[in-house]
């Protein structure tokens, strides 16, 4: 109870749509404070501008004495984030964690990392190599990935498109939510269920 007091407080704070900070986190299932979905708006003036990046957040039992576990679920081209798995290399999420930090400050640190990559301490060697050797190519790849993978989904439009293929609204919405708004995966599931 007392330990989740802090989490409750934090979620009330970080759950609000905060246009100024551009970071947010909400519980995946209402009532479960340990599995969160974070979102970071791509910082202006970077290759990630205009993108919406989703982060899987798991709160360990020992929180805040252990850091929250964070991982990008949106594909991103960045030297400190794995282009394959979304794993993040950021010291405060590892040995530099402090219980004075919060979910919000951790997300803000990630946002800062998107602004200033640290190729000297890479998570993805291939991306870091490109960042150091061919900055132009890096920038255009990162932009391309933002445009391809990090576009905010208009949920209503997606539901309508799936409905047009002959499914009812409720099952279309459920299938889309289950598959992270991947329309073809949702349709496949709906077809399989016939």
């Amino acid at each position: 109870m007392a330990a989740s007091g802090r989490l409750n407080k934090e979620l009330a704070e970080v759950g609000k749509d905060d246009k100024t900070s551009g970071v947010k986190a909400v519980a995946v299932t209402p009532g479960n404070l340990r599995e969160l979905k974070g979102t970071i708006l791509g910082p202006e003036g970077t290759c990630y501008e205009g993108g919406v990046f989703e982060i899987d957040i798991t709160i360990p039992k020992q929180y805040p004495f252990e850091p929250p576990k964070m991982k990008f679920t949106t594909k991103i081209w960045h030297p400190n984030i794995s282009s394959q798995t979304g794993a993040i290399c950021l010291d405060i999420l590892k040995d530099q964690w402090s219980p004075a930090l919060t979910i919000k400050t951790a997300l803000l640190s990630l946002q800062a990392l998107m602004c200033s990559p640290e190729p000297g301490d890479p998570q993805d060697a291939e991306v870091a190599k490109m960042y150091l050797s061919d900055r132009k190519k890096f920038d255009s790849t990162a932009k391309f990935w933002t445009e391809s993978y990090a576009q905010p989904v208009n949920e209503d439009d997606a539901i309508t498109r799936v409905c047009e293929m002959g499914f009812d609204r409720d099952s279309a919405k459920a299938a889309l939510e289950k598959h992270g708004w991947d329309e073809s995966a949702a349709v496949n599931q709906l077809l399989g269920g016939l």
Binding site: A2, A3, G5, R6, K9, E10, P64, P99, A100
Partner: peptide, 14 residues
């Protein structure tokens, strides 16, 4: 308190 975020006059977890 910067760790539990409860007031100092409050009760720490445990």
């Amino acid at each position: 308190c910067g760790i539990c975020q409860s007031p100092f006059e409050g009760v720490a977890p445990g």
